[in-house]
């Protein structure tokens, strides 16, 4: 019988231990599929964040470096400059990338460093128990904003893709969502495109992925997917914010 589905080589044969309904497992698989399809597993190095995806090295079947909270873009910069022929990517959440590591990501993007960032935006700090993130929606209840995020004092959610797209140097910036199967495939394609650009030496590539966190949102996985596809997408529209590869010269 013809085999039509298998575990990607880039994933280890271990079960995911994320909370029920969490997007991380599916997204890890999409990253692994993209690497398999490009045939670059032996050349890939990932950078694991601090946050729920801290265990990325337990699942990815290639080398992974764990660095301090928020510093993956700086670590990627050093690694890519030392080994320009490798596929190097960071996998970061909104606490890691948009809070503690905001300066690192902006400057790495601005220098046009030739690596890929996968930015998992689930509008909360998942690992520490559902505190307000910079991407938490206005009015969204979290453990540090029990009455909902207030604009006065806590500001508006930061649209990182749009902000990075104002820079001249980034090569490719796209936001996708994990709210339905079709968009999961779109996410994989965006990651594959980013990796392809990187292997071609084009420069900084960034894929923001709207993800669900049913446990900390206090929703069932289905409700969470609806919320991701509804209010989250309304505030964080999906789409391509920058794609220099498509620019007509």
């Amino acid at each position: 019988m013809k085999q039509v589905f298998k575990r990607p080589d880039s994933l280890k044969d271990v079960p995911f231990r994320f909370c029920p309904g969490c997007s991380h497992g599916t997204l890890h698989r999409m990253v692994a599929q993209a690497i398999d399809e490009l045939g670059v597993r032996e050349k890939t190095i990932g950078i694991a964040p601090v946050g729920c995806a801290v265990f990325a090295y337990d699942y990815f079947n290639f080398d992974v470096l764990e660095v301090a909270h928020g510093r993956p873009p700086a670590a990627c910069t050093g690694m890519k400059r030392a080994m320009p022929d490798r596929l190097i990517f960071s996998y970061q959440g909104d606490g890691d990338l948009a809070a503690i590591g905001m300066s690192e990501i902006i400057h790495a993007a601005n220098r046009g460093e030739n690596f890929t960032v996968i930015f998992v935006n689930n509008a909360t700090y998942g690992m520490t128990g559902g505190q307000m993130a910079p991407t938490t929606l206005v009015g969204q209840k979290t453990t540090t904003t029990p009455k909902g995020r207030a604009v006065h004092g806590e500001g508006y959610p930061i649209r990182v893709s749009e902000m990075l797209a104002t820079l001249e140097t980034p090569y490719y910036i796209e936001r996708t969502a994990m709210d339905c199967a079709k968009n999961v495939i779109k996410t994989r394609n965006a990651i594959k495109k980013a990796f392809t650009y990187q292997m071609d030496g084009r420069g900084f590539t960034f894929v923001e992925v709207l993800s669900i966190c049913p446990v900390n949102w206090g929703m069932t996985p289905l409700e969470a997917m609806d919320w991701c596809g509804g209010p989250m997408k309304e505030y964080f529209p999906v789409g391509v914010f920058k794609d220099e590869g498509k620019r007509v010269v």
Binding site: G70, G129, M132, T144, E154
Partner: peptide
């Protein structure tokens, strides 16, 4: 984490007068 998380409940409920700033690092 739990210290400030618990304390943020006191702030939200008006039990304390503290200004709680949820900074980025």
């Amino acid at each position: 984490t739990e210290i400030v998380q618990q304390f943020s409940n006191f702030v939200a409920d008006g039990i304390v007068d503290t200004v709680l700033v949820t900074v980025e690092s």
